[in-house]
Write a protein that binds this DNA or RNA. Structure first.
Length: 262
DNA sequence: CCGGATGTTCACCT
DNA sequence: GAGGTGAACATCCG
């Protein structure tokens, strides 16, 4: 899914809906709402309000709704693995790498009817909608984290560097593909405990994140990384010529190169 | 039939 | 508390 990059596309595309009034909305089926016990009816309070603001924190898309007096409430949208945002029936992303090539309106789990409909189409239903989500539970957005921030996050942390990158409460927005690409470019072994990184390695990591995200955003998505094409058995690392390896780190599928990721 | 897939959450261990 | 593991969620694909 949607990692920070894709959600940023969604945020950007949604700007044109700002100012429009929410006339009706449907959430189907009910279990798409978080927390799980939340009744769908809580969203009734949003009807008649205008979209005042669209922002993103990590992979969370936040829609501010309000009136002339300003924002009244905020809705959080998460896209899981296969969720796409459709505005007036079309999306900034046509399809996602690991979802079906089929496309079915029956997968629309949330539809917010402004002047144009805004929908989450999510085949696997791993996304969610939440009223007034607690953004403070997320770490700093990956694009806002500087060298010092990375240093603080890694210091004393026993878990693997990849686990740190994927931990949304430490740094928000990085998913599995982006994590592999960042570590591959930073020449860091994904399984290395974060606290074992030297100062210069942390700096290398910190200075790789921003440009990598910006570059993949230009190229069209999280799956456009240099290492993405190397995610197959027998692939030769284009950085050093060593054979790529597939393993599991932080319970996630991980492709890495022993030759230069130390 | 089985395993795995850009994610999150929860239960259960150590 | 930190951190790892595995399952669950739902669906398609190789």
């Amino acid at each position: 899914m949607p990692e920070l990059i894709e959600v940023e596309y969604y945020r950007s595309a949604l700007v044109r809906v700002v100012g429009q009034r929410l006339r009706s909305m449907t959430v189907t089926p009910g279990d798409y709402v978080r927390p799980r016990a939340t009744p769908t009816s809580v969203f009734g309070a949003l009807l008649g309000l205008q979209l005042t603001d669209v922002r993103r924190h990590g992979k969370l898309l936040l829609l501010g709704l309000g009136d002339e007096g300003g924002m009244v409430s905020e809705v959080g949208l998460r896209f899981g693995m296969t969720g796409r945002l459709l505005i007036d029936g079309t999306g900034p992303i046509d399809y996602l790498e690991y979802s079906s090539r089929r496309d079915d309106p029956a997968w629309d789990r949330v539809v917010m009817n402004f002047d144009v409909p805004v929908a989450i189409r999510d085949q696997r239903r791993l996304g969610s909608i939440e009223l007034a989500p607690d953004v403070s539970a997320l770490g700093i957005d990956a694009l806002a984290l500087d060298d010092r921030g990375w240093s603080e996050i890694c210091r004393g942390r026993r878990k693997s560097t990849k686990a740190v990158l994927l931990d949304q409460s430490l740094v928000a927005g990085i998913g599995n593909l982006l994590a592999d690409e960042i570590l591959w470019r930073s020449c860091i072994d994904p399984a290395r405990p974060a606290r074992s990184l030297s100062t210069s390695e942390v700096t290398r990591l910190a200075t790789t994140v921003g440009p990598t995200i910006a570059e993949l955003m230009d190229r069209g998505g999280s799956h456009r990384g240099d290492s993405f094409a190397l995610r197959e058995c027998g692939a030769i690392c284009t950085h050093c010529g060593h054979a790529m390896e597939h393993t599991t780190v932080a319970t996630r599928s991980t492709w890495w190169c022993r030759g230069h990721q130390l």
